[in-house]
Design a protein around this nucleic acid. Structure first.
Lengths: 182, 182
DNA sequence: CCTCCATGATATACGTCGTATATCTACGAT
DNA sequence: ATCGTAGATATACGACGTATATCATGGAGG
């Protein structure tokens, strides 16, 4: 493979994410990213395909965080999962809406889902209810994080309190499902 | 006021909404709307300000539906409110994501919120909990509708079942808050 | 060591977008 | 009849995504 690459996919995504954080999604342009990397805009196309591919890469970046330690109790694991998502929303509020627009079928999203499945099974949720409960939880968590990214809450404290309130509620739901199964 | 208008704001928003439904948000252009109306793109600027204003108008359109009949019991009113939102998502899946991006501070959104407040009070939720519960409900409903618009559910039946499940859950929560208040 | 050639960067160009600006048009009030 | 003005048009500019063609470079085969 000849001609050393001046730029890698990782560098491009790094730069694009930082640029989007600064100037917003609307201000994220191929030319802008190229400029920051000291490279022609067309150079990016080898690495990310096209702008859609760049955005997909950003989504992947947002979701790829460390997963919760599988050794933790299920309730704590679910809490961590939510916290990770919310942290991403707070860190990249401008980029976060991408998650809602383009459906998350990336590996990171899928393994996060499996983690939730596993936690629910451990909690004792009947197998046939697991997917539905997961949809409920992830829909809420994603919507909540998006609201937070959109500045809906007056303060992080308010958001924390609301989220804790929801966690408590969902915890009760899971317990009642568990009890009904026995 | 001289020089009769060839076009009104309402016509513009109608046309824009229909165009966006057909070709998606990305395909919605000032030129496209102008063409459909037989008018120069620049003619739109008198009526909607700029493209941002056009999009804001679309958001307003999405939210402005009939509110639930205030004579109905609170639970039914909350159900209707959710159904209205979901119907909008299903009718305009391409446009719906706008609701999440740009914060809904329109009159329609505010009066919808007040309706939920009122329903929660009628249900007996303590006053100091009302705003929090409303945030919880509306965050969930918005996220749910957005998921539906994004094609997350395999069928409308699945979505209906999931939503009913959530309604049941939230109903229990409201009752437990009510009981705790007495 | 020289010669390919595939990989990756560049140069150039096209069509489309939002919209600033200047101009024209035609009614309502005087 | 005149004029001011709301509203439509004409024109143009800069920025965008990206198709296409070309150029540079460094590792593999003789």
């Amino acid at each position: 493979m000849p001609a050393r690459a001046k730029v890698t996919r990782e560098e491009i995504l790094d730069t694009a994410l930082r640029l989007a954080d600064e100037v917003g999604l609307a201000g994220l342009t191929m030319r802008g990213v190229g400029d920051r990397l000291g490279v022609t805009p067309m150079a990016l196309y080898r690495h990310v395909g096209d702008k859609q591919g760049l955005l997909d890469g950003l989504v992947e970046r947002l979701l790829t965080g460390e997963l919760p330690d599988p050794g933790l109790p299920w309730r704590e694991r679910l809490h961590r999962q939510g916290a990770i998502l919310r942290a991403a929303a707070r860190r990249h509020p401008q980029v976060f809406p991408l998650l809602l627009a383009r459906r998350a079928a990336t590996d990171a999203a899928l393994s996060a889902r499996d983690g939730v499945y596993q936690a629910l099974r451990e909690a004792g949720v009947p197998e046939d209810q697991v997917p539905r409960v997961e949809r409920l939880l992830s829909t809420f968590a994603l919507g909540f994080a998006a609201s937070e990214a959109g500045g809906r809450f007056r303060s992080e404290q308010e958001a924390d309190a609301d989220f804790a309130f929801a966690e408590e509620l969902f915890g009760q739901m899971i317990e009642s499902l568990t009890a009904a199964a026995e």
